[in-house]
Design a protein around this nucleic acid. Structure first.
Length: 278
DNA sequence: CGATGATGAGCAC
DNA sequence: TGCTCCTCATCGC
């Protein structure tokens, strides 16, 4: 589930379901001590920063910090007591009954204002936040010798971007994933940023990642994009060996930044660039 | 640097 | 049945 669009989508869901309501809070698994600290308080606000989320409660300086990791998941139930035992955290509100359960998260802990500030300050601009300053990401990329395919996964560059958005936005702008960040042109950076700002809200709205332009749809090309519960409709992500939706070349894959990268060698040719002049 | 661990669904075999 | 995975903190070599 979890690239930034999922975090923002869940924050919205929590605000809709629990906003300004008194909650019951427990830790069925016994691995979230602070569940009791929150119990009986009014839920104020869930806010997402990249893949991190912070939940605020009345009269409490600390906030609940959540990071889903790879397999963490929220479940929402209409009944007050679904009686599951493997949840790290369960929170419910009455009338109308609603319950959420958090399972498998990497982080679920109470966090001081100083801790929160440190974590948020360590993140690069989040394309889903209106206060994001893309020039911070631009500067970090343009001084880096690391491949852009590595930098796209770095949360200090783009908060919230993960393996699918990395592969898909680089493809959509014909950028070689192996090219050093310092050779990325300003126009290319602008195109990547604008694309994230356009695509990620669609991911929040739809709960899946769709990146294929109408002119490359199955109807237009007769080629099937990958469509599954993970990725939505995409050009290259997990399509290794299948024909590129634009040129038909088999999609390539390799490991980059400890994750499987997918790209088209024809549409994203090996860059021979030695400098940038813009 | 690589392995591990949170834990569950989809899917290839 | 078993492998993969939209992640990343932590630990051992």
């Amino acid at each position: 589930m979890p690239e930034g669009h999922v975090t923002h989508r869940i924050a919205g869901e929590l605000n809709r379901q629990f906003g300004r309501r008194e909650v019951r809070s427990t830790s069925p698994q016994g691995r979230f001590d602070a569940a009791a600290v929150v119990d009986g308080r009014e839920f104020e606000l869930a806010e997402a920063f990249g893949k991190h989320m912070y939940l605020r409660f009345e009269d409490l300086d600390e906030q609940v910090h959540i990071h889903l990791g790879l397999i963490g998941k929220f479940f929402f139930f209409a009944e007050a007591d679904p009686a599951t035992e493997n949840a790290r955290w369960r929170m419910s509100a009455l009338d109308p009954d609603v319950t959420m359960e958090l399972r498998g998260a990497t982080i679920c802990a109470l966090s001081s204002p100083a801790d929160k500030e440190r974590t948020v300050a360590s993140l690069g601009p989040d394309p889903l936040r209106p206060d994001a300053d893309p020039d911070v990401a631009r500067a970090r990329i343009r001084k880096s010798a690391s491949p852009i395919g590595v930098l796209m996964m770095d949360q200090k560059i783009f908060a919230g971007v993960g393996n699918i958005y990395r592969a898909e936005t680089l493809f959509r702008h014909n950028i070689d994933p192996m090219m050093a960040g310092r050779f990325l042109r300003n126009a290319e950076f602008d195109a990547l940023w604008d694309d994230l700002v356009e695509l990620m809200p669609l991911g929040v709205r739809d709960g899946r990642i769709d990146t294929v332009r109408p002119e490359h749809s199955p109807e237009a090309t007769g080629r099937d994009p990958r469509v599954d519960k993970h990725g939505g409709e995409v050009y290259v992500y997990r399509r290794a060996g299948q024909p590129c939706l634009v040129c038909g070349t088999p999609i390539s894959t390799t490991e980059l930044a400890s994750r499987n990268l997918f790209w088209c060698k024809h549409c994203q040719p090996r860059s021979r660039r030695r400098s940038v002049r813009d």
